[in-house]
């Protein structure tokens, strides 16, 4: 049974990573036209708003499977407080940070109407930090990233997101300069 939880944790970890990649790409798409070939911005935006319904179950499955897996030795405190584990403190701690940031981004998104747009944007931009933390967590602790195929796909999606993030940041700076 322990092996089942171990396999479940690995599979759900990669599924969470894939879902987060889709969420970040669809968030970048309206400005960068990265998915313009696929659909109009309104449909992309609807998909972006819907992605938590995939991310949340996948992330919960990953965390619960690791909690139930005796080999991983993850406690409830490790899920919330980073760098507390007896091994791989940095690698696992980055996963904890990404989970914490994911919770913050989701909660503030649901509370968007009760806060200013500027405050919401500030919280929402934490998702970039969360994605970087999750990517490093995957690289430093991902058992399946030893597979060349999985590693190539992981790096390719991360590089694509980095490229379009920079493009979006450049466009954002251009808009700020144009206003000034």
């Amino acid at each position: 049974m322990d092996l089942f939880f171990w396999e479940l944790a690995r599979a759900s970890g990669l599924a969470t990573y894939a879902a987060l990649c889709i969420a970040v790409l669809t968030g970048l798409a309206p400005r960068t036209q990265v998915l313009g070939f696929l659909a109009q911005n309104r449909a992309i935006r609807a998909l972006h708003d819907w992605t938590p319904w995939i991310i949340i179950p996948a992330a919960i499955t990953h965390v619960v499977a690791l909690l139930l897996d005796a080999t991983a030795q993850i406690s409830l405190l490790d899920v919330v407080v980073p760098f507390q584990t007896s091994y791989g403190q940095l690698a696992i701690g980055l996963g904890t940070i990404s989970l914490d940031l994911l919770v913050i981004v989701l909660v503030t998104t649901w509370m968007r109407r009760s806060m200013s747009n500027g405050a919401w944007q500030l919280f929402h931009r934490l998702s970039y930090v969360g994605f970087v933390a999750m990517f490093l967590h995957a690289v430093l602790s991902g058992t399946d990233l030893a597979s060349p195929a999985i590693s190539v796909m992981t790096w390719a999606t991360a590089l694509a997101i980095a490229y379009y993030s920079l493009e979006r940041a450049g466009k954002g700076l251009g808009m700020v300069k144009a206003r000034a």
Partner: peptide, 15 residues
């Protein structure tokens, strides 16, 4: 470039 025509429900299903 002309935008694609995939509806939102199909994108969700694909995801």
């Amino acid at each position: 470039k002309p935008a694609g025509k995939v509806p939102a429900w199909a994108l969700k299903l694909g995801t």
